[in-house]
Amino acid sequence: MALPLSDSGPLEGPPVSYDPDLERIEIELLLEGVYRHYGFDFRSYAYASIRRRLWKRVEAEGLRSISELQALALHDATAMDRLLLDLSISVTAMFRDPDFYRVFRQEVVPLLRTYPFIRIWHAGCSTGEEVYSAAIVLEEEGLLDRARIYATDINDRVLKQAKAGIFPLNRMQEYTENYINAGGQRSFSEYYTAMYDGALFSPSLTRNTVFSQHNLVTDRSFSEFHMVFCRNVLIYFDRALQDRVHALFYDSLVMLGILALGSKESLRFSQYEDCYEMLHVKERIYRKVR
């Protein structure tokens, strides 16, 4: 089979004739309009990423410019739903970065075990891959019954998907490998039932999980947690917004609470760097110490 050529395919941005300065104006206007009309604030998202996602939506809607997308999104709430899904979804996998889950099991779980009752927050949980992955580890370590887990996202639709616990069947081989590499102790297939249109994960994995809408940009802290997961979510934010969200996490963690970031994210340059110690350097696991 010939490999598909990338010579054609979706736009990776505007046509080359498009003026980059004008494009920036249009993008800022669209994001401002979306914020003022719908209340979703993407104005401080990382420019290159949001630009790429906006152009994908422009193309999917059969439009030619960001301004046309702005008009459509403001006048047609269903088009806004589609745009919201594009802008807010984060693409991930179960047990993405298996080493992280291995370290979570070996080095973080023993700390969590010292608490009689554990509160965990998955911030920006998207479709829930990480929620289920962490729940599997907690279940195998006998901690799931002691845990209260909050899984939040800005987007209602992905939360519903997360809650349903149905993942694509064609990813199960990859997820099984990840699970094994992460030190999984059972047969991964014990956790799901294969149906014709997907793998349904055992509802008992989320028996102590509350899925709820929360906006990291505009909402405040809603509880105190022993651990916050926020992996590969902040990469979509600009530096100023990252700092604001770090303030939110700091306020939401108990003393000695644990913050897990993506393996290419850090607290470096953030004003909260001194408030944490590194529990694991490579996997970017931090502990609040002051």
């Binding site: 990338s6 395919g9 990776e12 290159a48 990423s49 693409v91 991930t92 990469i235």
Partner: peptide, 16 residues
């Protein structure tokens, strides 16, 4: 993703 002055990361879908 390259921006003026810094590099950003994305976990968006693989391309090709």
């Amino acid at each position: 993703l390259i921006e003026r002055g810094h590099l950003s990361l994305s976990t968006d879908e693989p391309v090709a």
